[in-house]
Amino acid sequence: MATIRPKVRVPKTAAKGDVIQIKTLISHPMESGIRKNKKTGELIPRDIIKRFEASFEGDAFFVADMHPAISADPYFAFYFKVPGAGSFTFKWTDDAGESWTVNKSIAVS
């Protein structure tokens, strides 16, 4: 499988109380488990990212539970109200329990 690369876009600075947009993207096939191998007719086993968690200073503020109906390379755009400077953790977990993490921080101007 190709290497899985998560990407996150967060503004570097914001004012306290601002509502900012966060965009995340991870390259992943999101194999639905109902597709068949056209040559052999066998089902391709399901392999999806089940859960995405965005946390700020350890508190999860946006959690997505995904099903196979989420497109390959799951993309999310969501919002966050900045309570002050701090660090974000973004974590994706797949069916097999493997996970990928990105850390970001924001400064308050």
Partner: peptide, 26 residues
């Protein structure tokens, strides 16, 4: 769809606003 579930997005007071964008299969 073969399965009706698509996704559930859990929000919190820090979420700022209840607006989520994603991409799905139909």
């Amino acid at each position: 769809n073969p399965w009706p579930y698509v996704a559930t997005f859990h929000l919190s007071p820090l979420s700022g606003k209840a607006l989520v964008t994603s991409r799905m299969r139909l």
